[in-house]
Amino acid sequence: MNKIIHLGRLLPLSPEMKLFELVDGYPQLLSIFSRLEISFPFGDISIEELCQREGRDAELFIMLCNMHLAPDYRPAEDSLRHEMLKDVVAYLRASHRYYTGYMLPHVANHLERVLEHCDSVSQRALRSFYDDYVRFLAAHFEEEERNIFATIDSIEEQADASFAMLEAPHGDIDDRTNDIASLVIKSLPERVPTPLRCSMLDHIYMLRDDLRRHSDLEMLLLRPLVAKYKKSLKR
């Protein structure tokens, strides 16, 4: 039974839903397929059948979809099972790879096309700013993998481990991502063609929103699951 509570608009996702309907109705979820390396074609199978085929938890898969679709979605406390923890960590790791291996280079490609219309001083300044941003994100991901995910990997041996970093706000990431958008909107020269500028903005906002969902996943899924897992170990 689907125990998910929906806040805001209703998202009628269920294990019986056909995968095609899911993708067709919510194409923005394709990035999840990419992260989970779900192989196509999948014919006429349902979410539940896909999850059985891939050895995934269907309830967790639906939660991930809902969290990506609705920023105000909150998984119900009693729908979280501590067995989901390792899968959530695997998903977050896959997301890190997705950002560093796909999304950030993709935005960089757009940036290079935009920079062709800027003078050399602006090119240097913007390129250097973006490179710093990528390094900043990479360092953040590495720190999470080292201090949080690696600790979760061996949580059975260290039930009292601290996960203080999970409490750390991600405001810096959001600010820096917004800064790129502000520079593109307000300061790039007029001669940058509007379609190029808009396409770059599309990707920056997509990245920003995805990073926000990523942070929500850590706060609303990972954190309570860690607490549940630690509690289960102490029993």
Binding site: F129, R176, D179
Partner: peptide, 12 residues
């Protein structure tokens, strides 16, 4: 400016 970071303000 809509820009918060010092690095972003520098580029601005």
């Amino acid at each position: 400016t809509g820009i918060r970071s010092v690095a972003g303000l520098t580029v601005y």
